[in-house]
Design a protein around this nucleic acid. Sequence first.
DNA 1: TCATATTTTTTAACAATGTTAAATTCGAGT
DNA 2: ACTCGAATTTAACATTGTTAAAAAATATGA
Lengths: 208, 208
Amino acid sequence: MAGAQRFERKQAVSDHKRALILDAARKVFEQEGLDGASLRAIAAEAGYTPAALYFHFDSKEAIYAEVLRVSIARLQEEVERAVAKTRSPAEKLRAAAMAFFDFYTENPRDLDLGFYLFRGGMKPHGLGKERDKQLNAALASALQSISDAAEELGAKREDARMLTVDTFAHAAGLLLLAHTHRIRMFGASARDLMEQYVEDRIARMRGR
Amino acid sequence: MAGAQRFERKQAVSDHKRALILDAARKVFEQEGLDGASLRAIAAEAGYTPAALYFHFDSKEAIYAEVLRVSIARLQEEVERAVAKTRSPAEKLRAAAMAFFDFYTENPRDLDLGFYLFRGGMKPHGLGKERDKQLNAALASALQSISDAAEELGAKREDARMLTVDTFAHAAGLLLLAHTHRIRMFGASARDLMEQYVEDRIARMRGR
DNA sequence: TCATATTTTTTAACAATGTTAAATTCGAGT
DNA sequence: ACTCGAATTTAACATTGTTAAAAAATATGA
């Protein structure tokens, strides 16, 4: 067998094992939540001894980061699917923002993970600049539809970017409140507030 | 000495010790951050052995909660001071919202603590319903000025309450982003976005 | 003042966490 | 069969929050 093929096979096997561990992580995470997703629990679920994971990953955070990476990819898919159905920039903006919001409402574990990692994570082995940058970029990519829609509505590129950040912040804040059961009033939901926010922004862009 | 006096003295001494521990907690927290504020570090700073703290507090979270309680009280003071200088409902709304935002910008450790505890905190000994409720109420009280101002601007009580939640969410989201260095674009700051949000809300209320 | 309760603090341990180094097993290539 | 390297385990470490039991300190009553 040629050297290149050997290498590819070995690489494939290694990737498969990584994937197995990540699947185990997702499963534990889904069932036990962030706090139950200890390295040891993940290892047990994957049929490994705790230390074995360190051959495939740098740290527990590295595993988390990888799970978050595909979570964000899933988010992006969902946003793009929602946007694809729209016929106007305004609809597009609305759809993208609400798809983002709904994704995290329907997948609270992804929200936990996102908040956890984006807050800085664990101590000595904390994410690391590269990973942080990468995840940030992935998230920005998932939110690109919002920026695009804003530009199509006539906003300058910089203003569109700011609107995106602002929208993200508003959604994040509402999700945090709702997720920790700090919104419950007069039948209004966090989603209602989010919708209202988006409509206001659209109306405001049109008014100019 | 009468029984009542004896009891009061003893109570005062006990309170003083509690205060000492809380001061130590604040100090460690200020200097080492949330992650450095382990029970042992707090105990050491207070000149105690770790286990001794359990005589005065239920858990590490109970200490955190107490620190957060006075933090929120300080926030409320600051908001009310800012509000006191205003002469109109619109100014009042603006001042309250921005004072809230600025407080957490200027005291990032308080923000850490707030986010930490309001996210659910640690595992088995997690805050507990009563404490959570109490802190929630304290926060609501600190934000009361916003609700009041909104009502003075003509909003119905329920709408004023919703505006308050919405404002809190927006601020929380922006603070989270800024605090984790996820806002840096075109010279616009998180504070600019917050100001813009508040102005929009005021304008919108006037327009009706 | 002495003995006795009571309150406060320490000592010593537990279980669980993430992580690491050294030893071991496993698997393919020669 | 042997060897070399990759993959995994074993066993430990340090750190965390927490608890039970012993000890010290303090107050109380005679």
